[in-house]
């Protein structure tokens, strides 16, 4: 019997697109397309087991070895800095981590900059590299509202099209880093399932380059 390769996929549209890539690469698992509440799907013949997890948890499943490989956004990898291998940029789910502020905002370097964000590590490191004194305000959602209500001067958040910002009289003032989905692997799992994981990387890379 083949050794099973455990794959953590992010729930949602991105995860479905990623699964389609795995399917095209020959790692199909038809039961995953059935409409059910199941969370784990396997195809013993292909030696692959998929499970849907919350996108922000993929890196934890992989780092802790519950999954051998997974697909996570670069934002999550930069924020939580898991000890994993980042094997491939899938060039999908593209967006950017950016600083945004109310239109017409002017940064006064004499004052501590108040930054509202879900990504405190990324924001902290970014401003540390610039030597800027900041006050980080950790929020879990609706970040855009913070500068409008005067809670913060700027926000650090993921920007995809910029529509939400525009509709709230905000705009991007700096781009921190481009974001996309990455194929990640558990370091120990990679050692013992190298052949299978390398095959996945090869097949997915061929699709991203096509």
């Amino acid at each position: 019997m083949k050794t099973m390769l455990n794959v953590a996929l992010p729930k949602g549209r991105l995860g479905e697109k990623v699964y389609a890539m795995f399917e095209r690469a020959g790692f199909e698992c038809p039961s995953i397309r059935e409409n059910s509440r199941k969370l784990i799907f396997e195809n013993v013949d292909c030696g692959v087991r998929y499970f849907w997890v919350k996108p922000s948890d993929v890196a934890i499943y992989v780092e802790r070895g519950a999954a051998d490989i997974g697909v996570a956004g670069k934002d999550i990898l930069l924020e939580y800095e898991p000890d994993i291998y980042e094997l491939l940029d899938l060039n999908m789910g593209k967006c950017r981590m950016a600083v945004a502020a109310k239109n017409g905002f002017r940064d006064d370097p004499n004052r501590t900059l108040r930054v509202a964000t879900k990504f405190t590590n990324i924001a902290g490191q970014y401003y540390l590299s610039k030597g800027r004194d900041i006050d980080i305000i950790h929020l879990n959602g609706s970040i855009e509202i913070a500068p409008i209500l005067g809670l913060s001067d700027v926000i650090v958040d993921i920007v995809e099209t910029g529509t939400t910002l525009k509709e709230n009289d905000l705009s991007v003032i700096e781009t921190i880093v481009p974001i996309s989905a990455r194929l990640i692997a558990n370091k120990s799992g990679y050692k013992f399932k190298k052949q299978q994981i390398d095959e996945v990387v090869r097949e997915l890379a061929a699709q991203t380059e096509a």
Partner: peptide, 9 residues
């Protein structure tokens, strides 16, 4: 060093 079955070195 890694051991099969353990997630970290």
């Amino acid at each position: 060093g890694f051991i099969d079955g353990l997630p970290t070195g």
